[in-house]
């Protein structure tokens, strides 16, 4: 299946938080997990669920907001990435301009690598 994939030129960027052992690297093609639509505090927006994009940069390791929201410490910290999506991927024929892009921060557990088909 052809997906619309954006260009990414990973910028020189110093992650503001330490990075442990990231599983993903800038340029990698990833899919956002669909998720079950369950309750709780989740920072992966619905409109990105199942979308395929490219890692734009590593932001660092941060405590899990899904746990922090309930007063727990959110450890172990997880790697946060900025992921770039083509608007055509997100909105299909309704995209204003298919090559426009959207960048969002997504935590590693919400991403899976997509291997070239």
């Amino acid at each position: 299946m052809t997906r619309a994939l954006p260009q990414v030129t990973p910028p020189p960027f110093a992650p503001p938080c330490p990075v442990g052992t990231p599983c993903l690297a800038p340029g990698d093609v990833v899919r956002v997990l669909p998720g079950g639509g369950g309750p709780g505090h989740v920072r992966t927006p619905w409109y990105l669920r199942g979308a395929v994009g490219r890692i734009e940069r590593i932001c660092g390791d941060f405590p899990n907001p899904e746990e922090l929201a309930y007063g727990r410490d959110g450890r172990p910290a997880r790697t946060l990435y900025r992921v770039r999506f083509a608007m055509a991927e997100l909105w299909g024929a309704r995209a204003e301009r298919p090559e426009d892009t959207l960048d969002a921060e997504i935590f590693e557990p919400w991403l899976e690598p997509v291997h070239a088909s």
Binding site: G36, G37, G38, P39, V42, P45, W46, L48, L90, W91
Partner: peptide
């Protein structure tokens, strides 16, 4: 909140 999908009301990107 969407009763079919569980999507939360505040998760409004794209509406």
């Amino acid at each position: 909140d969407d009763p079919e999908t569980g999507r939360r009301w505040h998760d409004m990107g794209g509406d």
